[in-house]
Structures are given as C-alpha cells and as structure tokens.
C-alpha cells in the first residue's frame, strides 16, 4: 500500500521530484489537456511497469535500458495511435507531446529504480501511484491555468463574463509562474518549510 501512496503525495513526481517538466509545462493549458496527458502517461507507466517487472529476470543487465526503451516506446506508439483514432481533437491539442511521453524521465526512472527490481504486484502499485500522482498534478495545473486564463474549468464558466482573459496563463511564462506557485503551496502544506 505504501508503494501506491508514495507517488501520490510524499514523492509526487511533479511537486516533489520535479520530474517530467516538459509535458507538465507544455500541455497544461486546460483541464482536459491535463487529464488526457496524465492518463496517457499513467497508462504507459503501468503497462511498461507490468511487462518489465514480469520479464525482469530474463533481461541481461547490459541491454536493460535498451529493452526498457523498446517496451516503453511500443506502448507510447499504441497510445498515440489510439488517441489519433478516437479523440483526434485532443490529440492535435497535445501535438508532439503525446509521442514525447517516451522521453518522460518519470517512466524510465520508475522502470530503472523500481519495476526492474521488484515483483509484479508492488511494481503495479508503484506505477499506479506515480502515474496518478503525475496526472493529479497535471490536472491541478491545467485547471488553475484554464481558470485564470478564461475563467472556466473544463469548459464550464466559473467566473462571470466580466472576466477578461489573462493571456499570459496559456503562454510558457504562465506555466512557469503557476507551477512555481503551486510547488511553493505544496511545500507549505506538507510542512517542509
């Protein structure tokens, strides 16, 4: 159980480990983008974690990273094709960042640090925890940026029509500002400072 909870809070990949910054900053312009990216990454993380931990004893040490990459990139390609086929609008919003999940260091990091050394059950829990922790961070960031940009969350009007669009929030600068404020808030809540 501890394997699962760790990724959600204490070792949250975004707020604590500050990993996977590229998709975190680039695609979180809206809540729906954050959810899609988070779920896609969670899927790849869980699927490759399962495969790698079940074949971990068969993989020779020297080519383990290469093997990880083959497995991870296969799953990423699967996700990309399915997204393009079934949700083309979101897929075009995410643009190159969908195939770029393959370079997300959380994924390779968890395989190397956990899945390749632990039994299947624990690896599954770890991957789920990390994936959901990542997804939650992206959802929060996407929600905050969308709300501040145009006063909506997930497309629903939260602020009235008086709200003027704050363009900076959908630009890269807004991503950095809101991420850093959220990290500061997170540290404050978890009592690290």
């Amino acid at each position: 159980m501890q394997d699962f909870v760790r990724g959600l809070w204490k070792e949250n990949p975004v707020f604590v480990q500050v990993l996977g910054m590229c998709p975190t900053l680039a695609v979180t312009t809206s809540l729906i983008n954050g959810i899609s990216m988070g779920l896609a990454t969670t899927f790849v993380l869980v699927a490759s974690g399962l495969v790698i931990s079940s074949v971990r004893k068969l993989l020779p040490d020297q080519v383990r990273i290469a093997s990880f990459m083959i497995i991870i990139s296969s799953f990423v390609t699967v996700v990309k094709l399915l997204f393009e086929a079934h949700i083309p609008e979101i897929s075009s919003q995410l643009g190159p960042y969908l195939p770029l999940i393959v370079t997300n260091c959380i994924i390779l990091g968890r395989q190397e640090a956990f899945a390749s050394k632990q039994p299947v059950g624990r690896s599954l829990l770890d991957a789920l925890g990390m994936g959901i922790g990542f997804a939650l961070a992206l959802v929060v960031l996407g929600g905050v940026r969308e709300l501040l940009y145009q006063g909506t969350i997930g497309g629903f009007q939260v602020f009235g029509t008086w709200y003027k669009s704050m363009v900076i929030m959908v630009m890269p600068a807004g991503a950095f500002i809101s991420l850093s404020l959220l990290v500061a808030l997170f540290q404050r809540i978890s009592g690290r400072k």
Partner: peptide, 25 residues
C-alpha cells in the same frame, strides 16, 4: 536474442494496433 525477441514482439503488436487504427485516422 532478448533484443531481437523484444523487437519482434513489439513490431507485431504495433502492426496489429496500426492495422486497427490507421483506417480510422
């Protein structure tokens, strides 16, 4: 052997998925 096998399995799986997804895309 391991790498070849992995590549084969991955290629097979991907071609199946792409067979399914390509017409829809």
């Amino acid at each position: 052997l391991v790498l070849t096998l992995l590549g084969l399995i991955s290629g097979l799986a991907l071609s199946l998925v792409s067979n399914y997804a390509d017409p829809i895309i």
